[in-house]
Computed example of a mutant assay.
Amino acid sequence: MNFEVVLTCAVTGAGDTTGKSPHVPVTPRQVADAAIEAAKAGAAIAHLHVRDPETGKGSRDVALFEEAVALVRDSETDVVINLTAGMGGDWSPSADDPAMPGPGTDMIGPEERLAHVKACMPEICSLDCGTLNFSDTDDIYISTPPTLRRMAGLVQEWGVKPELEVFDLGHIRFAKQMVAEGLIADPPMFQLCLGIPWGADATVETMAAMKAQLPAGASWASFGISRMQMPMLAAAVAMGGNVRVGLEDNIYLDRGVLATNGQLVSRAVEIIERMGGRVVTPQEARNKLKLRGAD
Rank of each mutant, 00 (worst) to 15 (best):
Q213V: 01
A200F: 06
T206H: 01
G240I: 08
L183G: 02
A180I: 08
I251C: 12
A180N: 07
M230H: 11
M189W: 05
M230N: 12
E248K: 06
L253M: 09
A221C: 12
T206R: 03
R227E: 10
V243I: 14
Y252D: 00
G256Y: 12
M239E: 13
A221T: 10
R255K: 15
N250Q: 08
L264P: 10
C193D: 03
E205Y: 10
A238E: 12
A238Y: 08
P215V: 04
A221F: 10
Q229D: 01
A218T: 01
T206G: 01
N261P: 07
L183P: 14
S219P: 00
V243L: 06
M210F: 00
M230E: 12
L253E: 11
V245F: 10
T260Y: 02
A268N: 07
L233S: 10
E181D: 15
G246P: 15
S266E: 14
A202E: 10
I225T: 08
A259R: 09
V245H: 10
G217S: 08
A238H: 09
K211W: 02
V204C: 02
P188G: 13
T206F: 02
V204F: 05
V179L: 06
V269G: 14
P231I: 10
Q263E: 15
I225F: 01
M230Y: 14
M207E: 13
S219R: 04
I225L: 12
M228A: 11
N242Q: 08
V265R: 05
T203F: 07
S219Y: 03
A234K: 12
A218G: 08
A209P: 03
W198G: 15
N261D: 06
N250D: 11
G217H: 05
M232V: 14
S222G: 15
S266T: 12
E205L: 13
D186F: 13
A200C: 06
T260V: 01
R255N: 10
N250A: 15
N242H: 15
P231M: 02
V179D: 09
S266P: 07
P197L: 03
L214D: 01
A216G: 07
S226N: 13
L192H: 00
A234M: 14
Q263S: 09
V257E: 14
G199C: 09
P231C: 04
L194V: 04
P215A: 00
A216I: 03
S222Q: 09
P187T: 05
D249L: 05
G262Q: 10
V237E: 00
M210N: 00
W220N: 08
A185M: 11
F190N: 01
K211F: 03
D201P: 02
P187Y: 01
A180F: 02
P231L: 01
A238W: 08
G224M: 13
P197D: 01
S266I: 02
I225N: 03
M230A: 14
M210R: 02
T203Q: 09
S266N: 06
S219C: 07
R267C: 03
M189I: 00
G256E: 14
W198A: 06
L253P: 04
S222D: 07
G195W: 04
Q191T: 06
W198V: 05
A216D: 13
M232R: 02
A200H: 04
Q191S: 14
V257Y: 09
